[in-house]
C-alpha cells in the first residue's frame, strides 16, 4: 500500500525533472528545488561579489571625479535624468554609480575580512576555554561578558579616535565586534561535542587532542560557526556603514556604502537617490546573506540529506 503510493509519486517527480529549464535543472543539482528565495539571494550575492571584484573594469568615471556643472543630477529613470550618469550625481557632481561600485568594493572587503577576524578569534578562544576549563575558561568567559556589556559603537569610536583612523584599524575594530558570539557558541558546542560518545571513543582509542579537534570536533561544529558568520556578516557591514555614516569610518578619498549613505543624509529630500541606492544595496545584501545562512544550516547537516 505504502510502497505503491510512494512509487506513484516518484516517477512523476522525475518525469517533470526531464522537462526542466536550465535554471530549474541547475537549482535541482544544487539542492535548491523550490527554494526560490534562496536562489534569488544566492544570485544577488554572486552579483554583488562580481561587482566588488570586477566592477572597476566598467566603472564609468573615477569615483572622485567631480563635475560641478552637474551637481545633484537625478538618475536616468527620474525626470531630468540622463544616460551620462545612470544613477545620477551627488552634491559634488560625482557619479553615483561609480561611487557605488567603489564603495561596494570596500564594504565587502571590510565585511568579509572583519567577519573572518571575528570568527577565527572568537572560535579559537571558545575552543581554548572549553578545552582547558578551569580558570582559563573563567577568564575568557569574563572577557565575553565584558564585551557584551560594552556599548560597542562607543568603544569603536573611542578606539578609532584614539589610535587614529586607518583602513587596517577599522577592519580590526569591526572584526572584534561579534567575537564573543563565536566564543560562546564554539565553547558550548565543543563542551557538548566532548561529552559525545564518539569523541570519548576516539579519545579512548588514543587519538591526540590536536587530531581529535581537527578530525572530529571541528567538522562537527564548523557548520554552525559558518552559519553564525553569515548571520554576523551583515552586522559587520552595517557596523562599518554606521561608523562611516558617523564620520569615523572610511575617510575620503576612499569610499564605502556607509559613507555614501552618510553624505546622502543631508540631501534626503532634495536628492534621495544618493542615500536610497546604497541603502537598498546594503539592505538586500544583508537580507540575502541571512537567507542563505539559514539555508546553509540545513544543508550542512549530513543527517538531513
Amino acid at each position: 500500500m505504502t510502497t505503491k503510493q510512494a512509487d506513484s509519486v516518484m516517477p512523476s517527480h522525475t518525469a517533470t525533472g526531464v522537462k526542466r529549464g536550465w535554471l530549474s535543472a541547475t537549482m535541482h543539482r544544487w539542492g535548491l528545488s523550490g527554494e526560490w528565495l534562496v536562489t534569488a539571494a544566492l544570485i544577488y550575492i554572486a552579483f554583488i561579489l562580481f561587482i566588488a571584484v570586477f566592477g572597476f573594469t566598467f566603472q564609468p568615471y573615477e569615483h572622485t571625479k567631480q563635475d560641478l556643472f552637474n551637481q545633484l543630477q537625478p538618475p536616468v529613470f527620474m525626470d531630468g535624468g540622463s544616460w551620462d550618469h545612470i544613477f545620477g550625481t551627488d552634491d559634488l557632481g560625482r557619479d553615483v554609480l561609480s561611487r557605488l561600485i567603489k564603495g561596494l568594493q570596500l564594504s565587502v572587503l571590510i565585511g568579509v575580512v572583519g567577519t573572518v577576524i571575528g570568527a577565527v578569534l572568537g572560535s579559537v578562544l571558545g575552543i581554548v576555554a572549553a578545552h582547558f576549563r578551569g580558570w582559563v575558561e573563567e577568564v575568557l568567559m569574563m572577557l565575553v561578558d565584558v564585551q557584551v556589556s560594552l556599548p560597542f559603537i562607543i568603544f569603536a569610536l573611542a578606539v578609532l579616535a584614539f589610535v587614529g583612523n586607518s583602513l587596517t584599524v577599522l577592519i580590526i575594530v569591526v572584526g572584534i565586534d561579534g567575537w564573543e558570539r563565536y566564543a560562546r557558541l564554539s565553547r558550548s558546542m565543543v563542551l557538548s561535542c566532548n561529552a559525545q560518545d564518539y569523541v570519548r571513543a576516539v579519545r579512548s582509542l588514543g587519538l591526540s587532542n590536536y587530531k581529535i579537534y581537527r578530525r572530529h570536533v571541528l567538522p562537527n561544529i564548523l557548520g554552525t560557526l559558518v552559519v553564525q558568520a553569515t548571520i554576523n556578516l551583515p552586522g559587520v557591514i552595517l557596523l562599518e556603514s554606521t561608523l562611516s555614516f558617523l564620520g569615523l569610518g572610511v575617510q575620503p578619498p576612499m569610499t564605502s556604502l556607509g559613507q555614501i549613505l552618510g553624505v546622502g543624509r543631508d540631501y534626503l529630500i532634495l536628492a534621495p537617490w544618493i542615500a536610497v541606492l546604497p541603502g537598498m544595496v546594503i539592505f538586500f545584501l544583508t537580507l540575502s546573506i541571512a537567507v542563505v545562512g539559514d539555508w546553509l544550516r540545513d544543508r550542512l547537516d549530513p543527517t538531513l540529506k
Partner: peptide, 22 residues
C-alpha cells in the same frame, strides 16, 4: 597512548559513538 591499542571500550549507544560526518 600505547596502551590504548591494548584495551578498548564498546559503548551503549552505537549511533552516538560514531562520528556522524565520517
Amino acid at each position: 597512548r600505547r596502551l590504548r591499542s591494548e584495551m578498548q571500550l564498546v559503548f551503549q549507544n552505537p549511533l552516538g559513538a560514531l562520528n556522524p560526518r565520517l
